[in-house]
Amino acid sequence: MASIESTSRTLRRRQGAAAAVPAAREARPVAAPAPGRSVIEFRGVSKRYSGGDVGLDDVTFAIERGEFVFLVGATGSGKSTVMRLLIKELEPTAGTIRVAGHDLGEIKRKRIAYYRRNVGVVFQDFKLLPSRTVYDNVAYALQVTGGTRREIRDKVPDILRLTGLSTKLHNYPDQLSGGEQQRVSIARAFVNHPPLLLADEPTGNLDPETSVDIMRLLYRINRTGTTVLIASHDQTMVDKMRRRVLELAHGRIVRDEATGLYTRDETTREFARRMRAPSARPPGLG
């Protein structure tokens, strides 16, 4: 937990708004979940697109540090809008969004790049750089932050080992399978050890078996203390995971609950075994 605390302090320092974050908050006991400790906080957020479509309609929720949360809903329900708001690709029409205690509306255009370095993002279509090898794709995320050559040599092989890509270092993205490409994209998102990882339909293009592997990887990352928010429409997958679920419909939150019982300290191995088990319904649910 200490490492997240320090990363998020770095996040605050980088955004250069120390005054907005009272120092007392950091002194609070870690165990007590107070609203101020939220990694993500949406308060009355609405997003209306220029064409008149409603992306989000007065959405309020909070996600605590270290949580693993699913965002579900039909196509067009606003999942992607939430994601795009969180990486500040879009601006909300109304309401405030806070990430690690920071109002996104106060981040100036020039500082967006620095903000994004603290949020790992995984996309359905991977969004890898086609002209770079696996190694260079991951290294780019470090080069962007001014990482030294030594740092890159140290960190990149580590993260690629974690994601099981050690043998594919010098392949280009088009030589990899979909699952492998998604692993590269996760490695890239996580190489900076961001306090928050967003995944927009990370398994949308993958077969069920590969999806389990990807979910397992995301779970492993979550167990290092990173808050993970996954947008997904894969209902069985979400049910099996037994994590907190936020459901959106027509831009509104219609469900916010933990599906079934689960133990926070389940190992990744147990997790994977349970995910592959044929009996889909979690015992806690009627």
């Binding site: 990486i87 690709e89 020039k110 790049a113 620095y114 903000y115 994004r116 370095r117 993002v121 969004k127 890898l128 750089l129 086609p130 002209s131 780019y140 995320a141 962007v144 932050t145 890239r188």
Partner: peptide, 16 residues
């Protein structure tokens, strides 16, 4: 242009 978009999402500054 897609490459540039990805770079931005990873957190590269404009001048980078």
């Amino acid at each position: 242009r897609r490459e540039v978009e990805v770079m931005k999402l990873v957190g590269a500054t404009d001048w980078f």
